[in-house]
């Protein structure tokens, strides 16, 4: 597959794992501004580890991660991460959660943190995400969907060039998930960030991604074999295509079948 022109984030032949065992290897990925790559894979194939590696939070055992052609060796301010469990701090209010990243970044760059200005900016985005009037609430008072909006808000306030999303909608009910998927699509188009989304839902991957990748081990390989990433253009054409088109597109049906095989192979290995 030809490389992407001017990728914002790239991984070159990356491998990473835990306790000396590589969970994925040979991952080469390039994502340009305004592009979204969705990665699907069965549980335990290393999707979250891959995302943490791209975020600079997990050191690759081989290969490099580059942002704007420069290798990174730790968290990078140009990268924003939305975690599976939202990563909110239950002891801070909605507003404090939203502005926390701004406070940390300001102090690190030696600037005085303008709390009032940050609160104003946060309120605007919170309102856009349907959280107006909830600024003084604590995360426990929010629904799952609202918590996810807040996590998204906190990351977007940092104006990242790269947005990494780790199964962001996996804990939500179907209706809220669809609603947030549409919201995310709107925000991604508007801000032209490079996004990498990992999910276990093929439908979600196809609906949200310009390109879709499968991270899995080939059937028949040993249990300790590292997973590989296989990337393809979105079989449904482009991201944001109608849900029904995405769901019943021939290529998507084939992809879903292949994904199901990968899951079964994982189960057999276990």
């Amino acid at each position: 597959m030809p490389g992407v022109t001017d990728p914002i984030i790239a991984s070159r032949d990356c491998a990473a794992g835990h306790a000396g065992r590589e969970v994925f290897a040979g991952v080469t990925l390039e994502v340009a501004a305004g592009e979204t790559v969705s990665i699907v894979g069965p549980s335990g194939c290393g999707k979250s580890t891959l995302l943490l590696t791209l975020a600079g939070l997990h050191r690759p055992s081989r290969g490099t991660v580059l942002v704007d052609q420069t290798p990174i060796d730790g968290p990078d301010p140009r990268i924003g991460l939305v975690l599976q469990q939202y990563g909110l701090f239950p002891w801070f209010t909605v507003l404090r959660n939203a502005t926390l990243g701004l406070a940390i970044r300001a102090r690190q760059s030696g600037r005085r943190f303008d709390a009032a200005g940050a609160a104003d900016t946060a309120r605007t985005l919170l309102a856009r995400l349907g959280l107006d009037g909830r600024e003084s609430d604590f995360p426990r008072q929010l629904s799952g969907g609202e918590q996810q909006r807040l996590a998204l808000c906190r990351t977007l306030l940092l104006e990242p060039e790269v947005l990494l999303l780790d199964e962001p909608f996996s804990a939500l009910d179907a209706l809220t998930r669809e609603e947030l998927q549409d919201l995310l699509l709107g925000l991604l188009s508007e801000r032209r960030v490079a996004a990498v989304l990992v999910t276990h839902s093929v439908d979600e991957a196809v609906y949200l991604g310009d390109r879709v990748g499968i991270l899995s081990r080939d059937p028949g390989t040993a249990a300790n074999e590292a997973a590989r990433l296989l990337l393809a253009e979105n079989p449904a054409g482009r991201r944001g295509v109608g849900r029904t088109d995405a769901l019943y597109h021939d290529a998507c049906v084939r992809m879903r079948r292949r994904f199901a095989e990968a899951v079964r192979a994982e189960a057999a290995r276990a």
Binding site: L57, P75, P77
Partner: peptide, 25 residues
């Protein structure tokens, strides 16, 4: 650990871990 990963993703230092996560808990 997921709170600390979340903080790290915002660019936090060890001092931030203490201030924003460990101390409140």
């Amino acid at each position: 650990a997921h709170y600390l990963i979340s903080l790290d993703s915002l660019g936090a230092t060890k001092a931030d871990h203490l201030r924003y996560c460990v101390w409140p808990l």
